[in-house]
Computed example of a mutant assay.
Amino acid sequence: MSPSTPPFALARFRAGDDIRLGLVAGERIRPLPPEELGAASLNAFLAAPDWDRIRALCAMVDGWRPLAEATLTAPVEPRQVVQTGANYRTHVIDLVMAGRADDGRPEAEVREEVGRMMDARRAHGEPYFFIGLPACVVGDDVPLALPAYSDQHDWELELAVVIGREAFRVSREDALSHVAGYTIVNDITTRDRVFRTDAGGLGADWYRSKNAPGFLPTGPLLVPAPFVDPADLAVRLELNGDVMQDASTTDLLFDVPALIAGASWNMPLLPGDLLLTGSPAGNGAHWGRLLRPGDVMVGSIEGLGSQTVRCIAEDDRPR
């Protein structure tokens, strides 16, 4: 775990052919059975999380083992995954600048103009949402098998909200009371499948570009909401040791309360669901360097630890 590991967190770990819920405290982990959790399942607990109960279990003497000996997997079991696009101010400005036609104006002048547009969107606009498949949620114990139909697979490190009690048409002011915790997600995207060339002006094809097996590496920790200020977190991704994304959630156009309020308007957000908040500047398309077999990504978010995702060729995936 990174130096920003919280006082305690939840995780799920492999025990033979089973996956069990665990309590993580420092560099230790112990099983967390339903009778200690106080609920029949993780999602049932998240519907009304009693973090004081879990904190008290950290004082127990028995059952602990070194965290390094455990194989952690995705810490959540969402029924829905709601994703947010174009939500970091600097990232959107970079995208607009990359696609603009040269009109002779200095770059700084154009960036300032686009920045004003983003500020107006933040003040008067609405978040942009789309849906991911829960089946794509995996832990970083599962290697990322890069599909052979493309060589344009990309990373997008994101802060993910884990919903607690059900949220349906909630206000911005009440939104954070529906958050159980936070985790890390790397939203993998196949760039040449985002826009179709055979369907006119139908727009982005998020199903094909973002929903291959393992395209949502998640975790390894579910950190309780009381330990996290989502408004000011460092977000950092390294590829083979080189820093590619290095930003802060202070750059979000729509903050976590605004996202929860907006996403809950159409459909109830359920306990354990994931709400991704968008990815900052610095993905592979920006650098002109997309994912290859053998790549290792380390994504970290302040207070949430870090995840390691290892890329392999599709033909090398475990059977």
Rank of each mutant, 00 (worst) to 15 (best):
A313I: 06
S209A: 13
G104S: 07
L291A: 08
H178D: 01
A108L: 09
H286A: 14
Q152W: 09
D103H: 00
L42E: 10
T73A: 09
G299S: 11
L221V: 05
A108Q: 12
E302A: 14
W287A: 14
E156K: 03
T84F: 03
A313T: 04
A285M: 15
Q245T: 08
L275V: 11
R122P: 00
R191I: 05
F215A: 00
T84S: 04
A108K: 02
I260Y: 12
L95N: 07
A247Y: 09
K210G: 02
D141V: 07
V81M: 03
L275N: 10
R30T: 04
R28C: 05
G139Y: 02
A145R: 10
T73P: 05
T90M: 06
A231Y: 11
V81S: 02
G299L: 06
R105P: 10
D229E: 10
G63L: 00
N266Y: 14
H91M: 07
P230L: 01
N283T: 12
W64Y: 15
E107Q: 13
L159N: 07
A145G: 14
R55C: 09
E302Q: 15
G99W: 00
H91T: 00
N240F: 02
G203P: 04
D52F: 04
V185Y: 06
V228N: 08
G219H: 00
E35D: 15
R193V: 01
L72M: 04
L72P: 13
S248Q: 11
S177P: 03
G115F: 02
Q245I: 05
N211A: 08
D255A: 13
P220K: 00
I19T: 13
R20E: 11
D174K: 09
L304H: 01
G262H: 14
P49I: 01
A25M: 07
R116G: 15
D50Y: 11
G299M: 05
G272K: 07
A234G: 14
G38K: 05
V170K: 02
V137G: 01
E27I: 11
V296E: 10
G288E: 09
D273T: 06
R165D: 01
G26E: 11
L32N: 08
P143I: 00
G181P: 02
T71L: 06
A74H: 04
S209T: 08
P127G: 13
H286Q: 10
D229S: 11
P75E: 04
D154N: 03
P318K: 01
E112L: 14
V228A: 05
T218F: 13
A167K: 06
G284V: 15
T183S: 08
M60N: 11
R30C: 04
P257D: 07
A86H: 03
L23E: 02
G241S: 14
S264R: 04
E35C: 04
L269N: 09
F130Q: 01
A44Q: 07
D315E: 11
L275W: 06
I188S: 06
A48H: 12
S209N: 11
D295W: 15
I260W: 13
D232L: 11
G201D: 13
F13M: 07
